[in-house]
Nucleic acid binder design. Sequence first.
DNA 1: CTGTGCAATACCACTTTGCCCCCC
DNA 2: AGGGGGGCTTTGTGGTATTGCACA
Length: 894
Amino acid sequence: MPPFVPRKRSHSEDPPPPKRQALDVSAKPFSIDESDSDSSESSLSDTPADNTHGSRIPVSDDEDEEEEEEEDDDIDWEDAIDPKTSATTPSLAGPELQDLELTLDKNEAHVSDLLDGKKGPTKIERHIRIQSHCIHVQCLLYHNAIRNAWINDAKVHETLRHKLPDGIHKEVKKWRIATGLEIPERKPDPPKSKKKKGKQAKKKEEWGPEAERLEPGQPDMSRGDPIITLLKVLVAYWKNQFQITAPGLRKHGYRPVASLEEIITDFRNEEHDPERHGERIANIDEFRAVAENMQGSRDVGAQLFTALIRALGIEARLVSNLQPLGFGWTKAEVYTPPKTDAVPTNTKPENGSGESESTPDVEQDPPKAKKGGAQYDKDLPFPIYWTEVVSPATNEIISVDSLVLPKPLGLSADQQEAFEPRGAKADRVKQVICYVIAHSADGTAKDVTTRYLRRRTWPGKTKGFRFPVQKLPTPGLQGQYFEYDWFRNVMRGYIRPPDQRTKVDEQEDETDLKRKQPEKKKTTQAGDTLQSLRTSTEFVLERFLRREEALKPGAEPVRTFTAGKGARAKEEQVYKRADVVKCMSAESWHKEGRQIQAGAAPLKKVPIRAVTLMRKREVDEMQRETGQKPMQGLYARDQTEYIIPPPIVDGKIPKNNYGNIDCFVPSMIPRGAAHVPFSGTVRLCKKLGIDYAEAVTGFEFGSKMAVPVIQGVVVAAENEDLLKDAWRIDAAEKRKREELKAEKRILQTWRKFLFGLRIAERVREEYGGGDPFADREREAQNPFALRKKNNEQHEPDEKHDDDHFEEDSHDPVDHGGGFLLPGEEDDGDDHLIVEEHKQEDHIGEDDSDDGELSPPISISSEPDEDQETGAKDDPESDYAPPTRSGVRRRRRGG
DNA sequence: CTGTGCAATACCACTTTGCCCCCC
DNA sequence: AGGGGGGCTTTGTGGTATTGCACA
C-alpha cells in the first residue's frame, strides 16, 4: 500500500503538500462565510476579523449565540486529483471508502456582513431586499391609514376637546372670529358649554366646512394668518400635556435571521412589552384609552395631536415619514446592536443631556430604560409623524410637529425643510426620507415628499431609499421601454379620486409639491469642477475621452482647467464635446463595410484587444519582439469610405484568403452578384457547376475563437434564379422526405403502443384483474385518457381514434390505429409547402431553413401523444431545445 | 457641507476564420 | 469510405458607470 492514507484528518501530521496546507487555511473560513451568513447573531464588534479569513476562527469567542453551525467540511478533494498521489495509488482510481469528518463548532458565529465581505450581494439577496422594502412600505402605509381612521373617531375627539382648558377654548374662539368663521357675539358662549355630550353634531354644524359657507366673513390677516397663533398655543399645550411613555417606530436595518427569529418568538410567546416589542395599540378602544391618558409614543402623540386639530374642525392631515427597510446595502440597512451591549455606560455620546436610556431597541435592557422617567426616542432628531394643518384662510399647508423639533411650525419651504432627516445624527439612527405621506380625514392619502425635501429638489435625500422609477422593456416591442413607478402604483389605492380633488390639492400641486430638478451646474470657467466637466455635455477633458473617442484633428481647446491644488495642481485643456469623434479600428470599419481611405493617419492609437487565441498569440509575439504593447490605430468615419468590390467578370466570384466572401452589409456584394442566403446552396452550386463563394455575414465568439457565420452563398446575378429554383425544388423534396420519415416514425410508435395495449389486454383476460375497460382503470392505464382532459385543443379526429381503441384493438394494424396509412395519405399538403417556401424566399434569410427544423405541417398538428411515446429520441424533431436550433440557424442559417 | 480622489464592483461591449465526431 | 454538417460552449477582458467612503 502506498503511503497515502485516504483520510483527511488522520494524515494531517504527515508532511502535507504545501498547496494543500494553503487550501486548508483558506477553506475553513470560506465555508464559514458560506454557511453562516444568515444564522448567526450579529455583533459588529467582530466584523473586523472577517476581513482576514485566517484570523476569524480564533476570535469568535465573544459570541453568545447558541446556534450550532456546521463548518469545516473537510473532504480533501484535492487529494483525489493530486496527480502524484493518484499516479502512485492505483486503488484511488476506483471509489474508495473515506472517512468524512464534520466539525460542528457552536462558537463559529459571524456576521456575514456584505459590506465587509469581499463579494457583493447576489441577485437573490438583492431580490429579497427589494421585496422586503416593498412589503414594508405597504404595511406602513396601511398602518397609517388605520391610525388615520382612528383619528377621526368621535369619541377620541370628544375626549381631547374635553381636556382642553378654558384658555385654549378662548383661543379657538378668537381664531374662529379672526378667520371669519364665526361672527363675534357680544357675549361669546363660555367654552365649557361646548364640552357637553351631544355637542358633536352641533359642533360640526358650527365649525365644519359648511359653516364657512353659512357664515361668510373676511379673515383678519392684519397680524398674519390667525391660525398660526392658535397652533402655537395648541403645540405648547400639547408639549406640556402629552407624555412620551413608549418607543415609536424607527428603522432598525436588517438583522441577522437568528436574532430576528428570537425576537419573533419572544414577541409571540411573551407578554407584550413595549420596550422589547414596540408600542401596541390593538384597536380603537385602546386608542381611545391612550387619548384619555395622553401618553404613548411620540408617534401616537403626533397622531392624537392631529385628532385634536380635527376635533376643532380644522382640516388636518396625518403625515408620516415612512422608515422602511431599504433595498440597498448602505449603512442605513445594517442593524446596529444596541449600544448598551458594547459600551458599559449607557450614556450616548450624541446625547448631551445624559438621558440616554431611551433606545427602544428590542434587545435593550428594560430596567435601564425604565429608570429615570423614560425619555424615549430622544436620539431621533426628526419626527416620524406630524400634522399638516390646512389654513382655512389661505388654503396653505402648515406643517406642525408638536413634540420633536425645536421649531414646531413649518410655514414656509425653508421651515418645512427642517422636517427632512439629514445630518450625522439622523444618519446614526438611520432616519431617512423616502416616502412622506399625508393622510386626510376622508381616508385618502397623498405623497407629499416633495414639500419636505431640501429646495424641493428631486431626488435629494430620497436617493437610494425611495424605490426608483424603473425602465422596463415594453413586452413585444424590442428596444422600447416604459417607465414603471412602483410607488405611484402603490399609492393608487390611496389617492383622492380626480373628481373629488380639493382646492388645496390643486394649490399645493402647483406650488409646494412641484418637483424641482437639480440645477445643472453651469459649466462656466469659474464654476468648473472635475465632476461638472465629467458630466458636461458641452465640454470635455482629454482624459475623459473613451477608448474609441478622439478629438477631431485641429480641435482647439476652449480654455484650461486646473485640477488639484497647490503642488499637485495640473493644467488641463478643456475641449468642446462637439470636437469629439467616434473612432474604430480598421477591422471594425470593415465589419461596417467601410475601409480606411488611402493615406489616412489614425486619430488615436490604442492597445490591441485580442480575444481569440490566434490573435492573442500574435499580440504576445509582437510584444516579445518589440518589448511594448502593440497598438492599433483608430480612424474616424470621415477617414473611411465604402468598400466597393470590383464587379463580377464572367460569373467568377472573388474570394478572400479563407475562400469565402465578406457580406457584412449589402454594399459588400459585388455588382453583378447576388446573395442567396439559404442553407444547402453550396451543394447545389457544385451540382449546377456555378461559381460561388460562401457568404460570411458576421462572427460568433466562443471558446476563444471567432467563428464566421455563413449564410448561403454569393453567386453571379445571372445564376441567381437558377440557384433559387433549384433550391426550392430541393427544399420541397427534402421536406417531403422528412414528412415521410416522421410519419413512419409516428406510425411505428403507435403500432408499438397498440401492441402494448393488446398485450396488456390479453394478460388481463387470461389472468383476470376485473373489467379492463372500467373507466377508472382505463384512466389509470391509458395516459391519453388523462391527457385529453387537460388538452382541449386536440383535433376532432383523435377523439375518434381513442374511442375506437376497444373495437379496433383486435386488429389495430390493419386500420392504422385510426391513422392514415402511408398509402391513404392525402397529398394535398404538398402544394401548401411549396407555397410556403416561395414566401420565405421573399421574406429573407432567417426562416428559410425551416424545412430542416420544423416538421412538415401534418406533423405539427399530430397529437401530443407522439411526443410522449418516443419522438424525443429523434434529435431532428422540432422538440429539440430552441437554443440549439437558434445557434444552428445563425451558424449555417439561410 | 461639498467636492475630490480612490477603491470596489457591476455591467457592457468588443472580440474577426477550429476541431472532432458521427451520420449520410 | 469519406465528406460534410453540426456540436462544442456561452468566452474573457478591459473599459465605464456607479457607489461608497475618506478626507480636505
